[in-house]
Nucleic acid binder design. Sequence first.
DNA 1: CGTCCAGGTCTAC
DNA 2: GGTAGACCTGGACGC
Length: 235
Amino acid sequence: MTVTQREGTLRVATPAALSARARAEVAQSVARIFAIETDLSPFYNALADNDPLHWARGGAGRMLASPSVLEDLVKTLCSTNCAFSATRRMIAALVQLGGGAFPTAEMLRDAGAQTLIDDVRMGYRARSLFEVAERVCDGELDLESLRAAGGAREEAVAETLGSLHGFGPYAVAHAMQLLGFHRPLILDSWTRPTYVQLLGKRSRSDAAIRRDFARYGAYAGLAFWLTLTKDWVPG
DNA sequence: CGTCCAGGTCTAC
DNA sequence: GGTAGACCTGGACGC
């Protein structure tokens, strides 16, 4: 499957023709991957002409996400306390567990925590992932309802995510960005030094960093991310 | 071959 | 409320 952009429209090409049902599923997945329902116009409109992020009005700021919230949370969990190469290895192992696609909550639960340890080699993260999978299967946790585009409340989402084992401040902030809540700053061992270097300073506390972006209000976390990744944007 | 630690978090003081 | 110590794993290092 390939996705191309032309004249403000995303076009999806598949190797073979799809049924109407499959087309709808692909369309929904692509929409979620590119956060189509996220409306960034309040952020863009609030940027003054002399704002250092004024360039973002060209359309920057969409976070690439996964088709499902579960997948985003698992990927986030697998990014904690390890090198990015390890994150990718764990995700690849999970996809193998899923038979070539990302596994469902049922598949993760049925696999069992020990398989997550022995085969996926997730280490102590296996417990956290298994607990989430179990709660989703039990109907106790409705992850898809946490999307901003679905009308979820920011405070409630932060509380729910924070209550999950293995989800501390970094993981919650990261997951919330992917869910369409752009306030929390993703503070980790990459963003902190990157920002400090950008500032040309020797160090800066988390509190000071938050103060630097407080004026962006509900988009503070997005503003922080855009500041760090400006050189990722072509042109 | 041992030590360190990377896109952190939890627990126990 | 703040902070050591432990925690799986596997690359990257020093010796």
